[in-house]
């Protein structure tokens, strides 16, 4: 075709005109613009899907509010919180657990999107994502960012409601917490992504709740300061310290007051790299776990 067109001086596109409405023999090179389009498309789909699932939208807001309005109110008198950084005065228990609840929102969201990925795997939505001509790690990362975007919507909706419940971090805190939220969202999301590739049968959400969400949530600094935990059990204290979720919560807690907890930042960054690396490896077409197990959705 190219020889002929060179000889006749005709343009390729012209020659291919009758068929070009249906197919492209020479598709355009995928430049930075195309990458950006793909990225935005994937993120936008996650957000659109979320906004269309009213139940998910509501439960993501109601769950932390229940903890805040009922659990925290009940616990307020039982648990005295001393002045620990980043707080400069005595704070209400509600104020103390807000970063923990934000972490919980992100944890739930990550696990839910991981579950939806398993579901996607069964239906084929994951398959269409993976036949996109972009590099697979880029596709997975885009999907991950989409999940984080959804969690940001949830967190800010929660903070907006909580504001009327005397959870009033400094105004700049709403801005400084953003990078922390993105990081913690990425860490939890990549953990969930890794799980979605390794665990073949994430049958229902109850299993994930019992074996992942609850242990991570309770064995962390989300509901009680760690010095309190240490008083009752040193072992549990150690477990909490090794729990990446603790560090996600602490990162958020300090960021909400314009401060950086460097240890937590390092742990969250490190965990993100490890989990994400695992997920990308698991989805790698030649080395990954999917190739070895014959999934997703590919029976013999």
């Amino acid at each position: 075709m190219s020889l002929q067109s060179a000889a006749t001086g005709q343009h390729d596109a012209q020659e291919a005109a009758p068929a070009s409405a249906t197919w492209d023999m020479d598709p355009p090179r995928l430049g930075p613009h195309a990458y950006l389009t793909c990225f935005k498309g994937i993120v936008w789909r996650e957000v659109l899907r979320y906004l269309h699932q009213r139940e998910r939208f509501l439960s993501a807001l109601v769950r932390p509010l229940l903890w805040l309005l009922i659990f925290a109110a009940g616990f307020r008198q039982t648990l005295g919180v001393s002045i620990i950084p980043p707080y400069e005065t005595y704070v209400l228990y509600e104020v103390f657990i807000t970063p923990g609840l934000i972490g919980m929102i992100q944890l739930f969201n990550a696990m839910q999107s991981s579950l939806s990925m398993v579901y996607d795997r069964e239906t084929g939505a994951m398959r269409t994502l993976l036949v996109s001509p972009f590099p697979r790690s880029f596709l997975l990362l885009s999907k991950l960012v989409g999940g984080v975007a959804v969690s940001l919507l949830q967190v800010y909706a929660y903070l907006a409601v909580a504001y009327f419940w005397e959870i009033e971090p400094p105004l700049y805190g709403y801005l400084t917490v953003l990078p922390a939220l993105i990081l913690s969202g990425l860490m939890l999301g990549s953990l969930a992504l890794f799980m979605s590739s390794v665990i073949k049968q994430l049958e229902n959400f109850a299993g994930v709740m019992n074996f992942v969400i609850f242990p991570m949530f309770f064995a962390s600094s989300a509901l009680y300061p760690l010095w309190r935990v240490k008083e009752s059990s040193v072992v549990l204290y150690q477990v909490c310290l090794f729990n990446p979720f603790t560090h996600a919560v602490e990162l958020i807690r300090f960021a909400l007051y314009g401060q950086v907890d460097w240890t937590s930042l390092a742990v969250v960054l490190g965990c993100t790299v490890v989990f994400l690396g695992g997920a990308i490896y698991a989805y790698n077409p030649s080395k990954g776990l999917i190739a070895r197990r014959g999934g997703p959705g590919a029976g013999v």
Partner: peptide
């Protein structure tokens, strides 16, 4: 198996897949 998002419109679905190809 089906690959479309049931709650999105035909157009939204197809635009998403356009994006997957840049």
């Amino acid at each position: 198996s089906r690959t479309l998002d049931l709650d999105l419109t035909l157009k939204q679905n197809l635009l998403y897949h356009c994006a997957l190809h840049g």
